Simulated assay, not measured.
Amino acid sequence: MPEVDLVFPRAFVEFVNPADETEVMRCDLTWLTSSYMCIFGQGCQGIYADAPDTGCCTLGAHFADEDDEERVKTFVDQLDETQWQFHPGRPVKRKDWIETDDDGERKTRTLTVDGQQACVFHNRADFAPANGQGGAGCALHGLALQQGRNPLETKPDVCWQLPIRRRFRNVERQDGSTYTEVTITEYDRVGWGPGGHDLDWYCSGNTEAHVAVEAVYVTHEAELTELMGKAAYDELVRHCDAHVRSRSALALHPADPR
């Protein structure tokens, strides 16, 4: 099925962060109560037609800041050849997995193998180490699962946040007081910038990826809690539960099954 139109009515809720009265959370109920799920390895076509097996890992991951890079480094140092297909076979150096883009921003390196470009941590389908593990997917994601962690601990921020998007905006009220508006919404094509419209396939608005049994606010509890804080997430759940009970067909994400 084709992707839905990028512009459609959405239901939002706003509430003060119970843990920080200077923040007002603005949450996209239409997205958060949708049936989206990541379908990597289950029908994902990749963002580029010439790299269908690499999902959204084709371009590598930009680091949010130095703390993001340093956190990832602690887990990169724990990877070995049985977990990471492109491990250098010696103590890992930053140049093995970090590069800068044309704007000087630091990101994970990309490699092109058999004509398919992907992040250096993306193990290809032919990865078959002697321990019987392997297969396609993120080495850092696999490490987290092996260690009993949530992958948000080991992967760059942009990787575990996608396709949830968090934005900040400083707002001044008419009385001169201010607050920080924190928007939690869908990371659709627009979130990728002008190049997002050039992607050959994208999941968040595609009916093929709206097949989860439970809604995003349930399946992405860990990610939302990390992005919002526990108190704000608990308040979000209350609003999402009420929205699910009362919503009409007009409030559904258009990629959801009818």
Rank of each mutant, 00 (worst) to 15 (best):
T74E: 13
T74F: 00
T74C: 05
F75S: 05
F75R: 01
F75W: 07
V76T: 04
V76R: 08
V76D: 03
D77T: 14
D77K: 13
Q78F: 10
Q78K: 15
L79Y: 06
L79D: 07
L79H: 06
L79K: 08
L79Q: 11
L79R: 03
L79M: 11
D80G: 12
D80F: 09
D80P: 05
E81I: 15
E81D: 11
T82R: 12
T82H: 11
Q83M: 12
Q83H: 06
W84D: 00
W84A: 00
W84R: 01
W84C: 01
Q85G: 05
Q85S: 07
Q85P: 04
Q85A: 14
Q85T: 12
F86G: 03
F86E: 01
H87P: 01
H87S: 02
P88R: 11
P88K: 10
P88I: 08
G89E: 08
R90H: 13
R90W: 10
R90V: 09
R90E: 08
R90Q: 12
P91Q: 08
V92Q: 07
V92E: 05
V92K: 08
V92N: 10
V92R: 07
K93L: 13
K93W: 04
R94Q: 12
R94M: 07
R94N: 05
K95E: 15
K95S: 15
D96R: 12
W97L: 09
W97C: 06
W97D: 02
W97P: 04
I98Q: 07
I98D: 02
I98T: 12
E99T: 09
E99A: 14
E99V: 03
E99C: 07
E99H: 06
E99S: 14
E99R: 07
T100Q: 13
T100E: 14
T100A: 11
D101M: 05
D101N: 09
D101Y: 03
D101A: 07
D102M: 03
D102G: 13
D102Y: 02
D103P: 00
D103E: 15
D103R: 15
D103T: 13
E105H: 07
E105R: 13
E105A: 08
R106A: 09
R106K: 12
R106H: 05
K107R: 15
K107N: 03
K107H: 09
K107G: 04
T108F: 01
T108G: 04
T108D: 03
R109T: 09
R109C: 11
R109G: 00
R109Y: 01
R109W: 03
T110C: 09
T110L: 06
L111V: 09
L111Q: 04
L111A: 02
T112Q: 14
T112Y: 09
T112P: 04
T112H: 08
T112F: 09
T112K: 14
T112M: 11
V113A: 01
V113R: 12
V113W: 02
V113K: 11
V113D: 01
V113S: 02
V113T: 06
D114H: 11
D114M: 10
D114P: 02
D114W: 01
D114Q: 12
G115C: 04
Q116E: 15
Q116Y: 05
Q116S: 13
Q116N: 06
Q117L: 10
Q117C: 14
A118R: 11
A118H: 10
